[in-house]
Simulated assay, not measured.
Amino acid sequence: MKARLSCVVLGALLALPATAKEGDTFQPFVSYARYYDSNLYRLAESEKNLVPQLSDQYGVLSAGLNVDWQPGRQRVIASASKSLVRFSHYSNLDYDGSDYRLNWNWRLGNRWSGQVGATESTTQSSLSDQLGLPVNNTVTRENRFANADWQFHPRWHAGLGAAAATSTNSTAQQATLDYEDTSVSATLGYTTPKGSKLRVQLRQVDGEYPHRPVIYLDRFYTQTEYNLLGDWSLTGKLTAHGRIGYTRRENDTQSQRDFSGVTGRLSADYFPTGKTMLTWAAYREIANSDDLNASYQLNTGTSLGAAWLLTSRVTLRASGSFENRSFEGDTGVVIPGLVQRDEDTLSGSLSLSYAPIRMVTIDLGVQAGRRDSNVAVNDYTFRSVFVSVRADF
């Protein structure tokens, strides 16, 4: 599947004219970033003797191209990139990553529109939950989607959508985290006289963990969502987006592993001046669990970001985030001393971006974070520094 999607994306990109027309975009890029991380494996103080060295440096060399092509009323957005990640000390963690995306925003007449697309990415799984184990695991995520929207009235429209997603781990140790799901959705929307949009949505997801041992966890689940979605332009400087709803998740055998409750996400972008921007988000969402001692995890958090255009060439950025991850769903297996995790993660970053010429951007920044868990070995703190250079041709 990976080879097929990469060929489709690259073929679509190479089939485009060598010289783009006005309004089209055909933009190759190359970048290199260098990182220093003080606690690469995200180990607790009591676990630091598990590895010979806590810190490491690594480089990320990336190259690819982006396309935004508009033939008539259609629009094709595509990208393809490859990344080589190489570590100075822990060379066993070296890997090659990739990211492919293809999206066709189609229109038919004045009433029909929609999207057809696919994405595929390969990246290294998080090292924060491996407790220092020297496992170089990559995760390949694939997504295929299609939707159609019918505007049957100047202010009303209805839509249908379908998608299929997979997540596949490269090592046998992490194969139990593989999952597959298919989803369908129906939406009814209304556009206000001022341009804000409100939609009600019914969505159902059928999922499977194909490699999980049944003795510990259900392998199949059905998730039903009843959502209210909105996009608002509150003023010329403030826009907001929201999704709030009720989610019910049912497993195939054990009802004590089910979930039902309110979920949602709110976000806002505020432009107080022509040179500053603030972004904020808050969420409560259910996600597939990466722990065999839980059927699912409930993520609740918030984030805040800011950008300040100091000069025409220099931009200062800052961000901070907080997230609570609650691992839930009774597995039905009692193991003395083993509890379900509940942990808080706090992180922040500060960076400076400099564009000496139009096609080149240089970034320099620092990051820091910590996690506090009810399972002591999952606590950690870290600090990192990075510098990157990117050229867009």
Rank of each mutant, 00 (worst) to 15 (best):
T300S: 13
T182D: 15
K197L: 09
P336V: 05
S79F: 00
T138G: 01
S38N: 07
D330P: 01
I286C: 03
S260Q: 14
T191R: 15
H157E: 08
P210C: 10
L228S: 07
Y209R: 14
A307F: 03
S388I: 07
F29A: 11
R284A: 06
S373R: 03
T279M: 11
R341Q: 10
D363T: 13
N288F: 03
D258T: 07
T361P: 00
S126L: 01
R371T: 06
N103E: 14
V387L: 06
G348I: 00
F259K: 07
Q297C: 13
A164G: 12
S38G: 07
G245A: 04
G301T: 04
F327H: 01
G348N: 03
S196Y: 00
S196R: 01
R34G: 12
Q174T: 08
R219A: 06
V135W: 05
S79E: 04
V262R: 04
A148Y: 09
F259V: 04
P210K: 11
D372Q: 12
G242N: 02
K194G: 13
W150N: 04
S267D: 05
Y283E: 04
T361C: 10
G117C: 02
D37Y: 04
V366F: 06
A318Y: 00
D252S: 14
Q367K: 10
S88R: 11
G305P: 00
F145E: 08
F145H: 08
K82F: 07
D68I: 11
N378W: 15
S88Q: 14
A164I: 06
S38K: 08
M359D: 12
T122P: 00
V333G: 00
T191S: 15
K21H: 08
R390V: 03
A376L: 15
M359H: 14
Q367W: 02
G329H: 01
V76E: 03
E208H: 15
T279W: 06
Y90N: 07
R107G: 09
D68E: 13
L352E: 02
L13P: 01
H157R: 13
L102P: 00
K237L: 04
P52H: 13
R101K: 12
D218Q: 03
N66Y: 02
V387P: 03
G97C: 11
V262L: 10
E47K: 11
L43G: 01
I335T: 13
L65W: 00
K21Q: 13
A165R: 05
N251M: 09
